[in-house]
Nucleic acid binder design. Structure first.
Lengths: 132, 132
DNA sequence: TCTTGACCTTACAGTGACTGGAAGCCTTAT
DNA sequence: ATAAGGCTTCCAGTCACTGTAAGGTCAAGA
């Protein structure tokens, strides 16, 4: 398979696949013409990566996950640990975003949004938030 | 005020303040010794920026917000529009993170997490997600 | 006066995970 | 023969900083 084929089948842009080769996540062989020659195993890896990335795992997490995936003697506890820690990160991010959302929603609700300059949003940004 | 003072009072690292000067968000005067000499107005701007950034606005949004803030003839509708659009982005991100969270939670719950290699998390990553 | 240490300056490189673009080679179809 | 499309490499740009190096400035103490 050429890079265009694996791109179509993995859902990853060709650019990204080249990048993944650069950083050593996949190591496709080369055809005589210099083109990357992907095996089914490479495609499988790339699809794995695409799914892990879609779940928000960092590249380094993905590298670790791939390593565990290919290690028949892995302990599922190691995988679970990675996933749990990533879940915690996700929850942190959600919490942060919810705080932003709540604060901003209050300001937006307070703003009449017409052509007058008076604006509670700017007022809120220009003064110390009432922290209690 | 020197940069250390405004850093302490705005909560922004000195590095970040220099960066904000580089990209034209603030333009402090200079003392004869070459040090940045911040006025109260600069500090106020930086605190504004710190709060807008804490709400997740991009630097370019912040630039626009600052422009509106300093424009006495602004329409509050313009500010509101920016804020509403940013709120939508926040909500999108939350929704995406919640999807990741849900998927990952299912996998984590299914994983016994002991020293056996059998692992539903890796299995889930290695096969096409059942999409319904 | 000298020194120490904290503060300030610039400039350049690195982060994460790509993405875009230029310049050029290879393949396939007409 | 040529044109279109796919492939190659390499370099630069994104976003918002952050780290580091090399050096200038200032206030306090011996």
């Amino acid at each position: 398979m050429n890079i265009g084929d694996v791109a179509a089948r993995s859902g990853l842009p060709a650019k990204t696949i080249r990048y993944y080769e650069d950083i050593g996540l996949v190591t496709p062989k080369r055809s005589e013409n210099g083109y990357r020659a992907f095996a089914e195993a490479d495609l499988h890896k790339l699809a794995f990566l695409a799914r892990a990335r879609a779940l928000g795992f960092s590249i380094e997490d993905c590298r670790a996950l791939l390593g565990l995936y290919e290690d028949d003697a892995r302990a599922s506890a190691d995988v679970r640990k990675l996933a749990v820690s990533h879940l915690a990160e996700i929850e942190d991010k959600i919490a942060q975003l919810r705080e932003m959302q709540a604060t901003l929603q209050v300001l937006v609700d307070a703003c009449h949004g017409d052509n007058r300059p008076d604006c509670p949003i700017l007022a809120g940004l220009s003064t110390t938030p009432r922290g209690g």
